[in-house]
Design a binder for these strands. Structure first.
Lengths: 307, 307
DNA sequence: ATGTCCTCATGCAGAAATGCATAGCCTCTC
DNA sequence: GAGAGGCTATGCATTTCTGCATGAGGACAT
């Protein structure tokens, strides 16, 4: 009950056990032993006066009371990791760890060559890249920098609008040669369309026309990267960022004049990191590089970096 | 360097020392001894490879590197406190601790009677009230519920618009009897006006007319509560929420038709707390009670609660 | 059915962290 | 200038915590 009595280490033990589902696995994860974690969980349960887990020979499963505590424990862990990142280099060095979060496409396809160029210029810079379409993570310090398609509205966050990315339908030239190139929206229905599965956010983003729903798609995935892979494999017609499609000669716009929309691109960081050199340098580099990308300039290549 | 090596308790020690400025004071705060904290700080500095504090016979002061780590350590503490709140009662009980954050006026004047009524109905409910005009604290779990005058834009936050509060100029009847009641904006300049000091946010809120700046005010304070106190003491003419001024017969509107504006009133909570009964009950009670307040119904009184 | 592999619980020895007491340093006051 | 009161640093005894080894229970495949 007395709050000094609960060691913060017990929260870490709790989180590890909750995440792994067993004392043994948690012990391996955080470098301790199973008896130690067992006793820490016991102590935490006694201190809180709650039963957090149901023990079984197969492991520990969270009780409802335990589930309520996981998000806050996760918050502690995020802050702890952010602290370690902050400590990973002096404030005036372009070194240490920077963690970037971005959407799947941006983070999985666009950013890697940009980050590679950045690291070529700053050899001591370590970059972590987290791909998620959630966007609530700057305040919780899940990341140092975020690339987002919506304007960040939180007042402790510094945001810069990089520009707008054009999106449109594309397909592989081989697919179009085989199946023909549709000349109107009506003709599209005869084609293999690639789209989202049950992603509510994507559904809402497409609410321009309520007739667009998942039943249209003959290939469905909530992974944007999987959609892109199918597109590049010639599996059908799908939405792709125009500057990205331009990188690959085998991809060709479809109904370019008819189906075309835009998303804002924002770069954001927490204002506490403003004076931090490694975050600042990364932010500025990404801002310039993403702007070039949006202007349809080619992404840097490995040879381009070396020369 | 290895991340398992740093005990989370060392972060707590670091934060306590950073906040109190000395090992001894920090030890008193978190219920440990000064040698223990000294050794924990040593261990943390060794683990991070940084010098966090400058030791002196007067205490410890943060280095720049140390200052960079304080916000994240604070984030850990916020999450730890939120976790304790979550653990303070079962999910299905209307008991335990609820932490509310609100602006000075709302939190300092409007909420207390509303909260008292809530607690009369739920004797096991403990309420913490934090008065701050910052609004970034729901995601960081600095509070369970927030009353705000701007729309919360974060997607992990559940927000409900309660209504709009009317604001206008008011003064004590004794003041007006003494100094006369101004009938136009021009006549205002001859009066003692109460307003903000150097609060940038307030300045921006009043940007309806750039001629309004702090030089107008003969009594200046960035504490809204102090402004209100001066107003009620008959010290001059100042802005006050209309439903609040209506509670006190000695306050009278001034230039009611000329100077009048409105602010949205929002109630917000983190979506993780949606199924949590004590937060849910508090949220619903405050929503109803604030709506009544905005409709100019009188605030509950102690006798009103008992009867 | 039996062996293997996973799990948690527990007794015990050793390691590590804690608290107490004390020494030393500085500042401020009388 | 002496004393009080604030602080940190350190030696030492003790408590506490940790890890190892082991036991025991269940799941699953042979």
């Amino acid at each position: 009950m007395s709050r000094a009595a609960v060691s913060w280490d017990h929260y870490r033990a709790f989180l590890a056990v909750a995440q792994t589902g067993s004392l043994s696995a948690a012990a391996r994860q955080i470098g301790q032993t199973q008896p130690t974690l067992g006793r820490q969980i016991d102590a935490l349960e006694r201190a809180l006066g709650l039963s957090l887990f149901v023990r079984s020979p197969a492991g520990l499963t969270l009780t409802e009371a335990g589930q309520d505590l996981v998000p806050d424990a996760q918050g502690m862990a995020s802050a702890a990791e952010a602290l370690l990142r902050s400590a990973s280099a002096g404030r005036d060095e372009t070194a240490g760890v920077v963690r970037i979060t971005a959407s799947e496409i941006i983070g999985g396809v666009v950013l890697p060559p940009l980050v590679a160029a950045l690291q070529a210029a700053h050899p001591a810079l370590v970059v972590e890249l987290a791909l998620t379409n959630r966007s609530e993570d700057l305040l919780r310090r899940d990341a140092d920098i975020a690339v987002r398609m919506v304007r960040p509205e939180q007042n402790a966050v510094i945001a810069r609008q990089i520009g707008r990315v054009a999106l449109g339908l594309h397909a592989h030239t081989a697919y179009l040669a085989r199946r023909g190139t549709p000349q109107s929206l009506e003709e599209l229905s005869a084609h293999t369309l690639i789209g989202f599965d049950r992603n509510a956010a994507a559904a809402r983003a497409l609410d321009v026309d309520p007739a667009w729903d998942r039943s249209l798609f003959r290939f469905r995935s909530d992974s944007d990267l999987a959609q892109l892979a199918v597109l590049r494999a010639g599996g059908g017609i799908g939405v792709c960022q125009a500057p990205l499609a331009r990188q690959w000669p085998e991809l060709q716009p479809v109904l370019e004049e008819t189906v075309r929309f835009h998303l804002d691109v924002w770069l954001a960081m927490h204002e506490d990191q403003r004076r931090n050199r490694r975050v600042r340098v990364t932010f500025d580099h990404l801002a310039a590089a993403l702007r070039a990308y949006l202007d349809f300039r080619p992404l840097p290549t490995a040879t381009g970096i070396i020369e």
